[in-house]
Amino acid sequence: MTGERGSEQGSPVRNGAGPGQEGRQPPVIAIVGPTGSGKSDLAVRMALELDGEIINADSMQFYRGMDIGTAKITAEERKGVPHHLLDTLDVTDEASVSDFQRESRAAIADIHRRGRRAILAGGSGLYIRAALDVLEFPGTEPAIRQRLEHDLEVSGLAPLRTRLELVDPVSAARLGDARRVVRALEVHELTGRPFSSFMPVREYFQPAVQIGLEVDRELLRERLAARVHRMVSSGLLDEVRRLDSLGLRRGRTASRALGYAQFLRVLDGEADEEQAAEETIVATRQFARRQLTWFRADPRIHWLDWQDPDLVAKALTLCG
């Protein structure tokens, strides 16, 4: 993901597996679930059993130097298993789902070509779907975007929403924030198609198995709080200070990451570390709930108890 494009931007992508391709490759394995549920650990344990390699699908772990606050898996924790798409972006870059789709699929193809198993691991739902599902991305046109953003600045969001209701009522009912309304209007003007027509369908691009980690929600709440406190004691504020000197605030994606946004306020004198930690805990718990809602909507996911002593064995059975 080398470009600085928005998460819904990119060139048109045609998603065909190609004649006979599906019959020649093993299913891609995806380990999904809420933050803090143990996805990285399970992925490593399965990779060791299956001679596999792991592809990161956590959008904030693309960023170099964002280690403590993203709970990025360490070299020791990887246990020698190759990991792909970690540390690929500077904090000033903007993560792009379309870039991830291209690069994750290239990594999957390369891993399979070498006779190994590809394992996706992460909680960024749209990124998982971009790698696994039939999904195309519309292009972008800066001149159209700039004109729409000017209209937004001059007239506010309401007139843009009214325009969107006329050309794409599905998106108008679903989208709330100004950035995405502008994007939907841009796509319609550029392609002549409603933005909603580009939404993913639940159809795998190539054979896949998704394994979800079923959590005890109260235990997860406690675990997330403890994890944030460990991040703070491990030097999260110093990490944010160092990344701030590298342009963290200019990064539209990285600057909004859980923990980083809150601890930038500490640097600005707007909060102390204790306040920032509590704000991060609340935001992380809310994020975990949204992740569960997203993944629960996909009936293809096989859910396994995150604390089952036979978790690895059961997961391997699902993968054939």
Rank of each mutant, 00 (worst) to 15 (best):
G80N: 06
L85S: 09
G52R: 05
S96Q: 11
P82T: 15
P34H: 06
R64C: 13
I111W: 08
L120G: 02
G10A: 09
G115C: 06
R78K: 14
D51G: 15
A118P: 15
R116E: 02
P26L: 05
G18K: 10
G23I: 00
F62A: 14
E94A: 12
S96P: 07
I29R: 11
A71F: 12
I68E: 15
G115S: 12
D110Q: 14
R64T: 14
R78M: 15
I68W: 14
M60E: 13
A121R: 00
K39P: 13
R105H: 09
G38L: 11
I111Q: 08
P27M: 04
G38V: 02
V44A: 05
H112Y: 00
R117K: 14
I54V: 15
L42H: 10
V91H: 09
V13K: 10
E22R: 15
G69Q: 07
S104C: 13
A43N: 05
G115V: 01
M46D: 07
E76I: 01
A121Y: 03
R45H: 05
I54C: 10
R64Q: 15
D110N: 08
Q101Y: 09
V91T: 04
D90S: 03
L48P: 00
D51E: 13
S40I: 05
R116H: 13
D41F: 02
A71W: 07
I54Q: 11
G18D: 06
S96C: 15
R116Y: 03
L50K: 08
G123H: 12
P82M: 10
D90E: 15
M60Q: 12
N56D: 08
P26Q: 06
K72M: 07
E94K: 09
S98E: 14
D87L: 10
R45L: 12
I68R: 13
I73Y: 00
I111E: 07
E53I: 04
G115Q: 05
